[in-house]
Amino acid sequence: MLVLTALERRITLHGFGIAETIEQASTAVLHVEEGSLYPALQRLLLKGWISGEWSRTDANRRARYYRLTPAGRHELNRQLESYERVTGAIARVLGMA
């Protein structure tokens, strides 16, 4: 979901970019091995939620840029919704709402 969110914000990104975005957004609270991003990307590609395209970076390096597919956007909305339901429920239980 984090990857999808990152892509939603920035349209297209390569792997390193996604890692950076997630780290910045979470202000380094979520700290995982950066490499585990790649199996996750393969899973998303396989499910058809993101698509990848090779092009050049600013420094003229070949890199694969990922973008959200319509199916992926749909999935993201679904996940956000269910996430909001869950967090909303937790908040109500904790009496914060």
Partner: peptide
């Protein structure tokens, strides 16, 4: 170090297929 075990991650990615 920050990336993690590259070989293992590579295997994992490939296994996804």
């Amino acid at each position: 170090v920050r990336f993690g075990n590259r070989l293992k991650l590579r295997e994992e990615s490939v296994d996804v297929w």
